[in-house]
Design a protein around this nucleic acid. Sequence first.
DNA 1: GTCTATATACAGATAGAC
DNA 2: GTCTATCTGTATATAGAC
Lengths: 203, 203
Amino acid sequence: MKKPRSKSEEKRQQILDSATLLFTERGFADTSMDQVAKQAEVSKQTVYSHFGGKDELFTAAIERRCVASDLKDLEVSDDQSARTILQQICARFVDLILSEDVVRVHRVCVSQAVAYPEVARLFYKAGPQQTISEVARVLEQLDARGDLVVDDSRYAATQLLLMLKGEARMRIEYNVEEKISKTEIESYTENCLDMFLRAYSSR
Amino acid sequence: MKKPRSKSEEKRQQILDSATLLFTERGFADTSMDQVAKQAEVSKQTVYSHFGGKDELFTAAIERRCVASDLKDLEVSDDQSARTILQQICARFVDLILSEDVVRVHRVCVSQAVAYPEVARLFYKAGPQQTISEVARVLEQLDARGDLVVDDSRYAATQLLLMLKGEARMRIEYNVEEKISKTEIESYTENCLDMFLRAYSSR
DNA sequence: GTCTATATACAGATAGAC
DNA sequence: GTCTATCTGTATATAGAC
């Protein structure tokens, strides 16, 4: 079982890849074991011998996507202004949450939150919660540097990140046809950061 | 078909009530027509004769819940400060979005956003979009009154409302066991409003 | 381990009596 | 209109050959 570069391990990966794709694209109930087997170019029995059943396959497939986002190890370099640093964070975060991929994982986790609480919780901890902690740490450093006045860094981070979702993210989540344009998104993002800096630049 | 206070109309309502309950509680796929019929104390055939099939029943059941929230017709009375007015709005909004009921409808709409875009869009327009417009109108009045300086009222309303969701709402959505306490929620809400007022009180 | 073929259950939807 | 009984497809899961 321990990384046998065998055919078996290869098929296991194929199955996992296919399952992740299908579950996130079509949802849990609308994905059948037959479809997974076909997509992985493997027989159904092989799927069952690798994973015990649909439940375990689903858990394994989604857990892989519950890894910490690329918004990690944020550095606060001394030669950059608070605005510049936060601008970069905002841009990266907005990119992240507007990606179809991330929305799909979010969607399937939320929709199965009652049936598979472990999966949804995993996503929450690896995603939103982790990101809030990271940004909070940055805000603390900017506070220590005297650029900002932040009493509760966790509150402030939560506020900034949630704001940034904007109507754009909601429309993707609800699959609304009329999407927000790229320039509009940039305008809103900038507006959020301005607003945030006004609120926390001093007292 | 027009409001026949008949047995038929009564059963129709029972079916609709049962469907709404089951679809929002267990999701679309995990709700069967048999369950709906049983819950409504009606035969399955009756369900099919009233609504054509599962699709139509789902649409009808969820559309009923896509009505404008109680956050409507917000009044700006002259003898109340901007803070007081917004405090009331914030409290009502937080109550709304933290209710299990609202989260359940949100969840099923998001999870079926690809299969039933009309339903998800309906929820979006009646819920989030409507609320943003309402709050934006209030902010414009407060701007006109000179209490706030708001350039883009829609942006500002979106920011305020999204912020208020906080970790509390996320934890309900993802069904995370460790919920945020009531006092913590109030503390965060107050913090949001303070922050919002600092950002928009003047330039 | 991997395949084809099959068992079993239950879903959505319909037929026909009353 | 409403019911009981049924059709038909397809899902998860398993049996048994190679």
